[in-house]
Amino acid sequence: MEYFFILVFIALSAAFVAGGLIASRLVAPRRPGDVKNSPYECGEQPIGRTWIQFNVGYYLFALLFLVFDVEAAFLYPWAVIVREVGLVGLIEVGIFILVLIAGLLYAWKKGALEWL
């Protein structure tokens, strides 16, 4: 029940976005032309296709982000009870983090963190 207001919030925000889109579709005049239909490239003449292959660096960063995202997710239950579990918990989590730091060092050494 405590999530009822979040549900209301989601419903209202969806209605807000949909309402704006629908209202502009109903009200706004539409006069498409060649220039208007061309893809916007900061005022430049568009060159080539819209589909380009992105730099592989994005993927590496996303992957590293994901791994440490999962790590952070597992640290959260520990952080809630950090006083309760004390030193033993700290050592357990320390081992967990150390292994992942090895991964970070590997990525660093391989140059995956450099933006070229």
């Binding site: 992957l63 590293l64 791994v67 597992f74 081992i95 983090i97 292994v99 992942l100 090895a102 991964g103």
Partner: peptide
């Protein structure tokens, strides 16, 4: 703890 190894393998 094994999970950290899995994540390491993923990296």
């Amino acid at each position: 703890e094994l999970l950290s190894l899995l994540l390491l393998a993923a990296v």
